[in-house]
Amino acid sequence: MLAYLIRRLLYALPILIGVNVITFALFFVVNTPDDMARMQLGVKRVTPEAIERWKAERGYDKPLFWNDAAAGTGKATETIFFTKSVKMFALDFGSADDGRDIAREISLRMGPSLAVALPVFALGLFAAIAFALLLVYFRASYLDFAGVVLCVAMMSISGLFYIIGGQWLVSKVWHLVPISGYAEGLTAAKFVVLPVLVSVLAGLGSSARWYRTIFLEEYTRDYVRTARAKGLSERLVLFRHVLRNALIPILTGAVVAIPTLFMGSLLIEAFFGIPGLGSYTIDAINAQDFAVVRAMVFIGSALYIVGLLLTDISYTLADPRIRLQ
């Protein structure tokens, strides 16, 4: 078990390196820093001096991989690859275009992101499982059919519509909560309620339908027939046998998302003005702040890999077949 986890951890390292290489290639090999500078400063009428200044401000004026001008280890470290990519492993992301330290900014913004993402995760999972259970309990009835149709219809609506519609109805028509914004402490609740509800609703259709399929597949198993042959009621068959088996893939499948909750949701945060990492990313994309985008890619990948690891662990814990072998 321990050996297995160590192996998984070791396996994560090359993946992280791979991610780093991909982002490096994307940001510095596809385009030269000169291209980026020219694009940010406006393509036309840009002097070479301006480009040099732009590059120097951001530390893009070094060679890509090998610095002949530097001395000693500097030949390797005084390069774009080292300062912009390798240093990320030490969580040193440099500073954004506005001069602020990215690492500090990230640590500040994690809180608001989590304040929205965690409730969305927990409520969403709960709502989808409950809805799917309801449909499965009344399977092959009109209720089930109508539920599936509702799910498909909900899946077919753009997420933007849920957000815009929710803001319009709850905030503009009913005046229940502020339309956007954020505050620290308990007052955060009134800002968080609407984005959470909207996200849960937007995700409900597809997850509930998917979970329903998992439940129904579990129903076809032989052990369900055995349970019925014992004289168990349908309710007990569903809750004691089917649910327990189906929850293993559902819960372990959800675990992978937990670490990425820190990243928040791009859309929700942007719409509701929540100062989390999602809106930070959006702002960086709109401002074409390459340093921030690069840092977010790295952190996102690292968190995803942690999620994979957690998935493995949770599988081992949840399924006796793996736990005891």
Partner: peptide
């Protein structure tokens, strides 16, 4: 490796670069 990069961010980064 490709999968571990959050999709939106990879798209954002690629689109930005392609824009350049």
């Amino acid at each position: 490796t490709l999968n571990s990069i959050p999709g939106v961010l990879l798209i954002a980064a690629s689109v930005l670069m392609m824009q350049v």
